[in-house]
């Protein structure tokens, strides 16, 4: 049977992708960001997942303002890295486990989570940067070591889905994957955050105390984290900090009690606090 073995939370700052793509990760500005992923890359090699269910948000790339699905599940055979306005990232095409994705889509709707099904979709830095930080550089003509099922969550137009809804969706994803009859090691990534505000006069807001409490809750008290209100994210972590609801999808798909394997927190990467956590299921 397929099983979810671990969850990963991590930021998906576009500048991190640029730093990797232009080979400047050893510069003093970037070194402390990437040092925190050394252990993660070793861990990924050891765990070697077959499939990554990757929760992220599209930054007005695949979706423009004409269509704003709250939850969009990637069911296409593959996903091409998009031109976001500065040229596509030089990373491999992302390949899906299409049968598992279709199974999850069907299971979620019958479980009363009415997701949107994407049979064609380009993917932006929100999806490819987490893969890059966890795997390291992969040449454009190479292959990502795992298949990837993308779930794009609307966090651009208010309101994003509530943390509670995301947490419960994670549980439904877990039920779907647990019921899939193929021996697969599946990981789930929740990406985005942590505190950051990209816009207007309060841009640059960082709230490290709040972020670290959130990381603690991810490890030990996910139900409390699921009850955080939108206005708290917006006020305390910046207008783009609301992305952290996506970590709750990941957390909902894990056991209630997990083992924290690794944690990393660093300010800044561009405008953003970089947060990262690895949580393993017990069985």
């Amino acid at each position: 049977m397929a099983r979810i073995t671990a969850g990963v939370g991590c930021s998906h700052v576009p500048a991190i992708g640029v730093a990797m793509d232009t080979g400047i990760t050893d510069e003093p500005y970037w070194q402390p960001v990437f040092d925190g992923f050394k252990k993660s890359r070793e861990w990924m090699k050891q765990q070697n997942p077959d499939v990554i269910f990757l929760v992220y948000n599209d930054h007005c790339t695949a979706f423009d303002a004409s269509c704003i699905p709250t939850f969009a599940l990637g069911c296409a055979a593959e996903f091409t890295p998009a031109d976001e306005g500065w040229g596509p990232r030089p990373v491999p095409v992302v390949k899906n486990h299409q049968k598992l994705a279709s199974h999850i889509a069907q299971s979620l709707v019958l479980d009363e989570f009415d997701i949107t099904i994407m049979n064609e979709m380009e993917v932006d830095h929100g999806l490819t940067v987490p893969l890059s930080v966890m795997y390291g550089e992969v040449p454009q003509d190479g292959e990502w070591p795992a298949l990837v099922i993308p779930l794009a969550v609307n966090v651009v137009q208010y309101p994003a889905p509530t943390g509670n809804r995301c947490y419960n969706l994670g549980k439904a994803i877990r039920r779907a994957i647990d019921a899939y009859d193929e021996d697969l090691n599946v990981m789930i990534f929740g990406t985005g955050g942590m505190s950051h505000q990209l816009q207007y006069k309060r841009a640059g807001l960082i709230n490290a105390d709040w972020d670290n409490r959130f990381l603690d809750m991810m490890a030990n008290d996910p139900v409390a984290a699921s009850q955080i209100k939108h206005v708290e994210y917006l006020r305390e972590t910046g207008s783009e900090g609301i992305e952290m609801v996506m970590w709750l999808v990941m957390r909902g798909a894990l056991d209630e009690k997990v083992t924290e394997v690794h944690r990393h927190y660093h300010v800044p990467a561009s405008n953003t606090a970089v947060g990262h956590i690895i949580l393993e299921n017990h069985d």
Binding site: A203, L205, A208, D209, V267
Partner: peptide, 20 residues
């Protein structure tokens, strides 16, 4: 957007960002 200018803004981020 903040009116700080690029250098001052970058410097603020390097020193922990805008406090809450």
């Amino acid at each position: 957007m903040t009116g700080m200018g690029v250098e001052a803004y970058r410097d603020m981020m390097l020193h922990g960002g805008r406090p809450i």
